[in-house]
Structure formats: structure tokens, C-alpha cells
Simulated assay, not measured.
Amino acid sequence: MLLQSDGSLVFKGGFDFYNPGSWRRDGDVLIVTVGGKAPFPAELYKEQLPKHIGGLTGYNEKRREISYRFDASTEFINFDNFYFYRAERCHAQ
């Protein structure tokens, strides 16, 4: 999951069926919008939301958006049951 400085999001090495995507920040909230033609995994997020697994704070199936708490204490986000960690540089080349 590569968050580009222009707000685009690219999946490499997996999840390419969600390309192209986008992202934006609203304070300490990271909002990921998945593209592609794959069905949005609403049932998964519905199950995870009460537990706030991986910083999950909400989702919008219609808009294909997933919201995460994303501040200095956030170690990872959980996307489709995979953990994505912050990195200064991408190693998924």
C-alpha cells in the first residue's frame, strides 16, 4: 500500500484489484478509498469496527472508504486482515 504525495494510493505485490485508489487525511484520521472492480469487503469491516482493529474507525461501503485513526502512536493499519506499517521508504518494488 503506497500512499503517494499527490493523494493517490497504489497497491503493489497484492491487492492490485483495488487499484487505483486514493487517500486523504483529516486531522488524525486517514481515509482510504479503494478503486477497482472487486467487491468492497463491508462484512469484514462490520465485524472489525467494534474492536477498532488496526485503528479502524469507520467505513462507507457506498463510497468505498475506510477510515483509520492515524497519529504518532499508530503502529499499523489493518487492511483486509493484512497489517501495513509505516515506512520512510517503500520496500515493495
Rank of each mutant, 00 (worst) to 15 (best):
I77N: 02
F76R: 10
L9T: 07
S5I: 08
T33Y: 04
A92T: 09
R69Y: 06
K51C: 03
G13W: 03
G35R: 03
Y68L: 08
G54N: 02
Y85I: 00
R69C: 06
I77Q: 02
I53P: 01
G7N: 06
Y18N: 07
Q48D: 12
F70S: 13
Y59H: 04
R89D: 12
N60D: 15
P20G: 12
V34L: 08
N19S: 00
R25Q: 15
K37D: 14
L3C: 10
D6Q: 06
Y45G: 07
T74L: 11
D71K: 03
A92C: 09
T74G: 03
R86H: 12
H91N: 15
S8T: 14
R24H: 12
A72P: 04
R63P: 00
E47F: 11
R64M: 02
A38G: 09
Y83M: 10
P20Q: 02
K37T: 14
H91D: 15
F82G: 07
G14D: 09
L49R: 00
F11A: 12
D16K: 09
F11C: 05
A72S: 15
R25D: 05
Y45H: 01
K12Y: 01
T74N: 08
R89A: 14
L56Q: 05
P20N: 08
D28G: 11
K37S: 14
Y59R: 05
K12I: 10
I53S: 14
L2P: 02
K51A: 10
F84A: 07
R86D: 11
V32D: 00
S73N: 13
E43R: 15
M1D: 03
L9C: 07
V32F: 00
S5R: 11
F79T: 07
F17N: 10
G58I: 06
D16E: 15
R69F: 06
L30C: 04
N81I: 01
E61H: 02
G35F: 02
R24G: 09
N81A: 07
N81T: 05
N60A: 13
S5M: 08
